[in-house]
């Protein structure tokens, strides 16, 4: 646990400064169309008029009463089986999903690493770089300033002028590289990474891991969701283990991962 002491979790005055406080957080998704059929227009109208909820709505309680405090300089890993609520919790910390109950307090604006949702496959890589940058909240001039760096980092143009082609013509690896390059162009106070470490070929993976380390150094606090225990070990000094939306374990990386690996029978 040598890296843990070197993360500067203690401020000058000796006390640890919290950057994210999660207080009894509950997240509920409402899923429409879970039942059978879509219902007729008249049925829908009468529902609207009577202000009743549709029988087709199912509620999914994705996060159930999680509480923890993360401090400046910490890198926190989130582990758990598929559907355990890891990504949902990151979105709630980022303020993108409203909590059903409980509160999340943050220092500044935490952001998820990723711009996939804002990009359009039918547009050229060029326009997607600009669109993605603007979507992440950069100014017009900032995007133009960083444009060349983003393209160079992605390595899209290594094999010819691909940046001026629509993104739908890219191979899945190339598209993933461009998406990562756009997303990683911005600095964050509280950075949250959702399994974004392994994209592209080996050379690009090395480059992106390098970039993540840089972002980590600049960011106050880092959250990492991953199923790759190795990248959690390499990156994090504290791990939260979520299962069925509940916090099962919270502690130093090695201990939590050991228990997790015992549990999953690995």
């Amino acid at each position: 646990m040598a890296e843990q002491s070197g993360t500067g979790a203690v401020s000058e005055s000796g006390e640890r400064v919290p950057t994210v406080i999660v207080d009894d957080l509950h997240i509920v998704y409402r899923v429409h169309g879970a039942g059978s059929g879509k219902g007729s227009a008249t049925a829908a109208l009468s529902r609207i008029v009577r202000r009743r909820t549709s029988p087709n709505v199912r509620e999914v309680h994705a996060v159930r009463g999680v509480s923890f405090v993360a401090y400046r300089g910490e890198a926190v890993g989130l582990i758990g089986s598929n559907g355990s609520g890891k990504s949902t919790m990151l979105r709630a910390i980022a303020g993108l999903l409203p909590p059903e109950r409980g509160r999340v307090y943050t220092d500044g604006q935490p952001s998820l690493l990723g711009v996939n949702a804002a990009l359009m496959n039918d547009l050229t890589g060029e326009r997607n770089v600009i669109l993605g940058g603007l979507a992440m909240g950069m100014g017009n001039s900032e995007v133009r300033e960083k444009y060349q760096d983003i393209v160079d980092f992605s390595g899209i143009n290594e094999k010819g002028d691909f940046i001026s082609l629509p993104m739908r013509t890219y191979s899945s690896g190339m598209a993933a590289r461009l998406r990562f390059s756009i997303a990683a162009a911005k600095q964050h106070d509280v950075l949250m990474i959702d399994e974004a470490l392994a994209t592209g070929d080996r050379a690009f993976q090395r480059r992106s891991e390098e970039r993540i380390r840089e972002l980590r150094a600049e960011a106050g606090t880092v959250f990492l969701v991953s199923h790759n225990n190795k990248s959690i070990r390499d990156t994090c000094d504290r791990v939260l283990w979520l299962e069925k939306g509940e916090l099962w374990m919270d502690g130093p990386t090695e201990q939590v991962l050991e228990a997790y690996e015992r549990h999953t029978g690995k």
């Binding site: 994210v20 207080d23 509480s67 303020g95 307090y105």
Partner: peptide, 23 residues
Amino acid sequence: APSAGDGLSAAELAAKYGLSVSG
């Protein structure tokens, strides 16, 4: 209950360090 070890509630702790409600 999350606390910094000095018995503060989450809201008090957030206020102490100037954290704001996310979202």
